[in-house]
Amino acid sequence: MDKRVTGLAEAVADIEDGVTVMIGGFGGAGSPIELIHALLDRHRATGHPRDLTLVNNNAGNGHLGLAALIEAGMVRKIICSFPRSADASVFNAAYRDGSVELELVPQGTLAERIRAGGAGIPAFYTPTSVGTDLARGKPVAEFDGRRYVQERWLKADVALVKAELADTQGNLTYRMAARNFSPLMCMAATQTIVQARRILAAGGIDPEVVVTPGIFVQKIVEVASPVQEEDLARAGAAYPLEA
């Protein structure tokens, strides 16, 4: 089994209009910027995909990556915990003019909804948000004398993820805090597309240190020198990046 694809364009070629896309990363750490920009390139060339629902902790920074997807008009809805960032002007404008819908989810609830989606658990109860505005309309139940809010699983058609090492079977490791949501998103998406700094032969990653087992991964593309979104943002870079 070899899950490698030939390049970034092929990796994102069959993402359809209207789908839900989970995008790994917390701030710049783990942001799969090359995959996102490949999706933007495809949209510039073909007008597709569009009407996407994005799932990420944030709602983009500056004019790169996730923010650039919004700026290109490809996004209908964002499910996230914290739309603020150093420069959230793109999301803020889209939110204010109503072109992008926001579903605000507490960060730990977002993680657990994604985990549940990948694990086949349709709903769960959490103490988070009990008695707050974010629990409105959700069932509440008491267990052992405390109240808990029912939350639903969250699944996606596609996940875009940045890994450190992959092997050809899709086993993954991550780099430091770039791990964040990615292992959960790999589980929760029908099609998980991974950019890895290095792709090794099967057996190249010690099974003891695999973080995401290959069963959760469908496509892998090597991006040997990935850019760091935070570096780009601090340099004031915008999509499309100059070659």
């Binding site: 915990s81 914290f82 926001l102 605000l104 989810v105 507490p106 609830t109 707050t132 974010l134």
Partner: peptide
């Protein structure tokens, strides 16, 4: 303004 919650509601429990 734009609402943002992050981990605030999680951290107060547990």
């Amino acid at each position: 303004g734009v609402p943002a919650v992050g981990g605030a509601m999680d951290l107060v429990h547990g």
